[in-house]
């Protein structure tokens, strides 16, 4: 088992999944928060835009989004994230960022909904109180609503993060050498050890996702707003 892990650089492949997940999660949190604010805003055009974004992105397969990022955005529209000149790893690095782009826009829709479900946990009195002391929409969102929404929405946000970690495997569709890619390699060369290889990869994902689940349930009870 150890020799398999070393021979095929399993840890290096998992490290790529972790990097994909970390970068995409941060960006998806930012984009998801922006979309959530659009959906909560008192301007109906912005509501409509937020709702449409979520509907479109949630109903599109992630595989399609990531393949489209590669074949459509890069090959057809020429969108590049890293300098091409004198960069021997141009394709690998560019595909990393295209995968990050796909993972970000897809999961931002789910982060948006998680934040909105966090908003649903806040009692009406909170925003009424905020308005009664004269805060405007932006101020009450920033000072009262969103801080509580993030705390109330930790569990759904954690679920999105778990899904995101698992979904980084889809990046193999555009040639990222992460664990799904490495697993296919391993099974081609060692078809006899198939079940062992599957268990190594599967347990790797259990190790990656289990702490997130435990961590979010710990955080959500620790940070729960006392009411």
């Amino acid at each position: 088992m150890l020799e398999l892990i070393e021979q095929f650089n399993v840890l290096g492949a998992f490290w790529l999944n972790i990097r994909l997940a970390a970068v995409s999660f941060v960006l998806a949190m930012v984009l998801g928060t922006v979309i959530a604010i659009l959906r909560l805003a008192p301007v109906s055009v912005l509501n409509w835009f937020g709702a449409t974004y979520v509907t479109l992105l949630r109903n599109t397969p992630l595989t399609l989004i990531i393949v489209f990022a590669n074949l459509g955005l890069w090959l057809q529209l020429g969108i590049e994230f890293v300098p091409r000149e004198g960069n021997p790893n141009f394709i690998l690095e560019n595909n990393f960022w295209l995968a990050v782009l796909g993972l970000t826009v897809y999961h931002a829709a789910f982060i948006c909904e998680a934040i909105r479900s966090g908003v649903n946990t806040i009692p009406v009195g909170q925003s009424e109180a905020a308005r009664s002391i004269g805060l405007g929409f932006g101020q009450s969102l920033r000072e009262v609503i969103l801080p509580q929404a993030f705390r109330g929405g930790i569990t759904p946000i954690g679920n999105v993060l778990i899904a995101l970690i698992k979904n980084t495997t889809v990046a193999v569709a555009i040639g990222n050498r992460e664990i799904a890619y490495q697993m296919r390699n391993m099974m081609e060369f060692r078809p006899d050890a198939g079940i062992l290889i599957f268990l190594i990869v599967a347990i790797g994902f259990v190790i990656l996702t289990l702490p997130v689940g435990l961590g979010t349930s710990w955080l959500s009870s620790k940070l729960a707003v006392k009411r």
Partner: peptide, 23 residues
């Protein structure tokens, strides 16, 4: 709990490679 933690793609690749490669 195990199969909820493992990505669907990993299970697909495993089944596929087993069916076409494993003697």
């Amino acid at each position: 709990e195990f199969f909820r933690a493992v990505p669907v793609l990993i299970m697909m690749i495993f089944t596929w490679q087993m069916l076409v490669k494993n003697p």
